[in-house]
Design a protein around this nucleic acid. Structure first.
Length: 430
DNA sequence: TCTGGGGTCCTAGGACCC
DNA sequence: TCTGGGGTCCTAGGACCC
């Protein structure tokens, strides 16, 4: 069988969260920006200026706070509503350039451009870039290669080497030059090679991407796993990881958050758990699944080594698979009551819906409950419809509480410029 | 004082079966 | 000496990704 060299592209927004904030505050252009995680705990996104200062991804905010002040870094709480909406706009534009699109994460998508080879793909990539910049105002880079792993690597080059001007098509690079490039990139940059694996590879004398490309897939499979074998094959231009244009339904759904301040009482934990399971149930219905099990967990603060620690969890099976928020709340709260112990300072709680299956196919309970089932379905649909139309939380279960003293910190959040009419940006004529 | 959240895949090992 | 062997299913834990 003749192997056609495929052209897979990876379109990736540059410093996505930071760039989103800049769109609505042009004064931030060229200035250092940090975006904090939920609860304003860690640094999870940085503008290039901040990366250049050596502030690492994931460091606790309090450790770099004074440095940030010294360098006058603008800092924001994460505004996921804004980022998700900006992401949708970018993805929509890209889809108009290529129908074969896999939205891989909030700021990245893969494209299969194999059928577009009659075009100069580098130019086509530049058109994609300028269109996104024109309509959404976000910078992106594009990498193209014969496999997803190569597209990822090409994207890395497009970002790091100004020579490529934001678009790098490895399929147009001559083999010798390609090996030259690969010999200058450390193996840890390869998609799928994390910190642990990098260390083990280096011990085997595999330091660069070129070393890994030239390694024996079979030998590495024995040492590592089938994942590593695929990676080596992909580096050699053999596409092993298919594009997933339609996202398969999730197999589990998690909702968990740290609290703004420690929580002691069962009642406050109950509010938080009710709130989380309500979110999880919404996601569940959104993908038309039902859950058969609920896992509930609570945590004290593991960083406070001197305080007593307690981090229990419990898996509670449901009598039958459901997507009914009321049933899920009751189940989760029963689980919570069974693990709660007074006298601890709890810092986090969460729920996990497990054993998901498509709704409408669930096995019937022991008793004929079609009437109840129909009633539940109508009620949930009504709630979802109202909340979708009028804003999340318009209708909610009282068990979520009204005060929510456990709520996470988000002290530096910008407005939902693109999704709330009352928060739309205002421009003044001078 | 202050340390994110949500997901997937793979493997090894135990339980169990015939 | 050697003390069955092969298969499936499930789960926990590790590693990775963004």
């Amino acid at each position: 069988m003749a192997l056609v060299n495929r052209s897979i592209a990876l379109v990736d927004c540059n410093n996505f969260y930071a760039s989103c904030e800049r769109v609505f505050n042009p004064a931030l252009k060229g200035k250092p920006i940090i975006i904090l995680s939920n609860n304003d705990g860690c640094v999870i996104a940085r503008s290039q200026e901040v990366k250049d200062l050596g502030i690492k991804m994931g460091v606790p905010w309090f450790k770099v706070q004074s440095l940030a002040k010294y360098h006058r870094i603008s800092t924001f709480s994460s505004n996921y509503t804004l980022y998700a909406d900006m992401s949708n706009r970018v993805m929509k534009i890209i889809s108009e350039f290529c129908p074969d699109q896999e939205v891989y994460s909030i700021d990245e998508c893969f494209l299969d451009l194999t059928g577009f080879k009659h075009l100069a793909l580098t130019d086509y990539g530049q058109r994609i870039r300028s269109t996104i910049n024109k309509f959404v105002g976000l910078p992106v880079c594009i990498g193209i290669g014969a496999s997803k792993t190569l597209a990822k690597l090409a994207n890395h080059l497009a970002k790091k080497r100004s020579f490529f001007d934001g678009v790098c098509d490895l399929n147009t690079v001559k083999p010798d030059a390609l090996d030259g490039l690969f010999s200058e990139i450390s193996v840890g940059e390869v998609w799928g090679v994390g910190r642990r694996t990098e260390k083990r590879l280096v011990e085997l004398g595999i330091h660069t991407v070129l070393d890994l490309k030239r390694a024996s897939p079979r030998a590495l499979r024995k040492q590592f796993s089938v994942v590593m074998e695929r990676t080596v094959r992909e580096l050699n231009g053999e596409s092993c990881i298919p594009l997933e244009e339609i996202a398969p339904p999730k197999k589990q759904l998690i909702c968990s958050r740290g609290f703004g301040a420690p929580v002691f009482s069962l009642s406050a934990l109950s509010e938080a758990v009710t709130s989380y399971i309500t979110r999880a149930a919404e996601k569940l219905r959104c993908q038309r699944s039902v859950a058969a099990q609920v896992y509930v967990f609570i945590h004290t603060n593991p960083f406070k080594k001197k305080e007593p620690q307690y981090s229990p969890g419990r898996l509670v099976p449901l009598p039958e698979p459901t997507d009914d928020t009321r049933m899920l709340i009751n189940t989760a709260l029963a689980g919570l009551r069974s693990i709660y112990r007074p006298g601890f300072a709890y810092k986090k709680a969460g729920v996990l819906l497990d054993d998901l299956s498509p709704s409408g196919q669930q096995q019937k309970g022991l008793f004929d409950n079609m009437g109840t089932l129909q009633h539940s379905k109508s009620l949930m649909q009504a709630i979802d419809r109202i909340n979708n139309a009028m804003g999340s939380g318009t209708i909610k279960f009282l068990g979520e509480g009204l005060e929510k003293q456990w709520k996470a910190k988000a002290e530096k959040k910008t407005r939902c410029y693109t999704t709330r009419i009352d928060e739309i940006p205002v421009a003044y004529a001078v």
